[in-house]
């Protein structure tokens, strides 16, 4: 594991509880995405998840499915996203991780993708369709390019949590609920228990909770039992509503959410 990248993702968790926003790159276009990322960084985002759209995102709910489709229809490609990130890196130091699906990386060439991601200043990746059993093919290549492959644990993981946590890099993504991404009225899983299990085998690894969190109250509640919270669909929905006007709205939302998690 590269010391630099490890430190960089870890650093995201050194300013109190972390707030981690997600955005589908290219929705509705990459110029808007660029502005949204600037707003996120300026308003206190500790780490930013950049979604590379995939045609058939099987782990996503309707909000991110629709955004992925809009982004692809707008002509967004992996290479165009690389170009955008390379430019943004000149002004933004916030850690970035890509969130996408195995085939996007596999078809690009895992080695070629990892090399490009390292060159443009990415810090890690989240691949929801690559579980523990399949991760080696990707993680070994990413590691040699200083990129962390973030592990996910779910409410159904039970005894798998220890095995996953032991080898976790960067941070552990705790999936709060069954099902796909999307906003939820309430979260009933005992995520605190999941986090405790992770820490029992890997005390240093930060844990961030995602799936279903959409407002400051939920964020504050979830942040109380973890090191950070991740919000995707609520932001993507905002972008769907406001389109090219979305950046300032997202900026205000990120500010509010960061304040909420800090109170946890």
């Amino acid at each position: 594991m590269s010391e630099m990248s490890m430190n960089k993702i870890r650093k995201a968790f050194e300013h109190g509880k972390a707030f981690i926003p997600f955005i589908t790159c290219g929705d509705p276009n990459l110029d808007t995405t660029r502005e949204v990322i600037r707003e996120m960084a300026e308003n206190g985002a500790d780490l930013i998840e950049l979604g590379i759209p995939f045609s058939d995102p099987t782990a996503e709910g309707p909000v991110i499915q629709d955004a992925s489709l809009r982004a692809l229809q707008a002509g967004t490609t992996t290479d165009k996203i690389f170009d955008m990130v390379r430019e943004l890196r000149k002004e933004i130091a916030t850690p970035f991780v890509f969130m996408t699906y195995a085939n996007v990386i596999f078809s690009y060439g895992i080695e070629k993708f990892a090399k490009r991601a390292e060159e443009i200043g990415m810090d890690g990746l989240i691949l929801p369709d690559v579980p523990y059993e399949e991760k080696q093919e990707f993680a070994s290549v990413f590691r040699s390019h200083g990129l962390d492959l973030i592990s996910l644990i779910a409410p159904t993981s039970h005894s798998r949590i220890r095995m996953i946590a032991r080898e976790a890099e960067g941070f552990v993504y705790c999936v709060s609920s069954l099902g796909v991404t999307g906003m939820r009225q309430s979260i009933t899983t005992n995520v605190g228990e999941m986090v405790d299990l992770v820490k029992s085998v890997n005390p240093q690894i930060p844990c961030a909770i995602g799936f279903g969190i959409s407002n400051p109250e939920q964020a504050k509640k979830m942040a109380a039992s973890a090191d950070g919270v991740i919000v995707g669909s609520a932001i993507v929905k905002m972008i769907g509503e406001y389109g090219t006007d979305a950046p300032k709205h997202v900026g205000a939302f990120v500010k509010e959410m960061k304040e909420a998690v800090e109170q946890a």
Binding site: T58, A59, A102, P128, D129, V130, P131, Y132, E133, E134, L152, I153, A154, P155, T156, S157, H158, R160, I164, V175, L178, G179
Partner: peptide, 21 residues
């Protein structure tokens, strides 16, 4: 053992479903 046919197959599925599989 891991459900491979040559290089094909595998279990590329969200963690949520792994225990079910």
């Amino acid at each position: 053992e891991n459900g491979r046919f040559g290089i094909h197959g595998g279990q590329y599925i969200p963690e949520t479903l792994m225990n079910a599989l």
